[in-house]
Amino acid sequence: MHVPNGFLDAPTSVATGVVAAGAIGLALRGARRELDDRTAPMAGLVAAFVFATQMLNFPVGAGTSGHLLGGAIAAVLVGPWTAILCTSVVFVVQALLFADGGITALGTNIDLMGLSTVLVGWCVFRGLQAVMPKRTSLVPVQAGLGAFVSVPVAALLFTALYAVGGTADIPLDKLAAAMVGVHLLIGIGEGIITALAVGSIIAVRPDLVYGARRILRARELEIRPAATSGASS
């Protein structure tokens, strides 16, 4: 969903750039609470992993393809603030080195593919975690669902930005339908990849997954008074 130069007008691009800069500023503060000696090295690696998976376009229906956006998976693995930093690094490198996503559209791309997928993915993930049983085995499912929802929402957000500052006069209802349609399919891929990747780490080291820690902590507190109940896993 990398937005090239020219799709959005200058004022809109400046506005999205300001939002992106503000979000990164907040994230630089917020990430301090998420990063410790175990998560800090994870964060750089998660950024690298998101970059790698964004090279892997998978086919979705007729003549089109999509790739992971990565906000949801990053948020679940290293925390939402850190995830904003991870995804921003990816988009900066892609724009500067790989000519993928315009430089004037960098703020737009950080907002659409990073910030919004982190926020939506994390909120859906935490919402599901709140209502579902507190089991680490459910974390990959919840992460996958958050990832799935985040993609069509980002597509809608692009449509909204286009409504404000699109450079061509096109029917917005058709744009919205086309964007959400194809990105629902891409979202399925995003959900599956996210669930598989989070599941692989949960299987070996659930404590390295930020989104699973709350459950692990709660479990430790529960187990101690009732050590004989064998409540583990």
């Binding site: 969903m1 990398h2 937005v3 799709f7 090279m55 892997l56 376009n57 998978f58 086919p59 979705v60 003549g63 089109t64 393809s65 999509g66 790739h67 597509a155 692009f158 061509a168 096109i170 029917p171 058709k174 744009l175 086309a178 964007m179 194809v182 990105h183 891409i186």
Partner: peptide
């Protein structure tokens, strides 16, 4: 990886 246009690229072609 698939070399067909990415979702947004395809939509931008279809929608003109």
């Amino acid at each position: 990886a698939a070399s067909t246009p990415d979702g947004l690229t395809k939509v931008s072609e279809d929608q003109g």
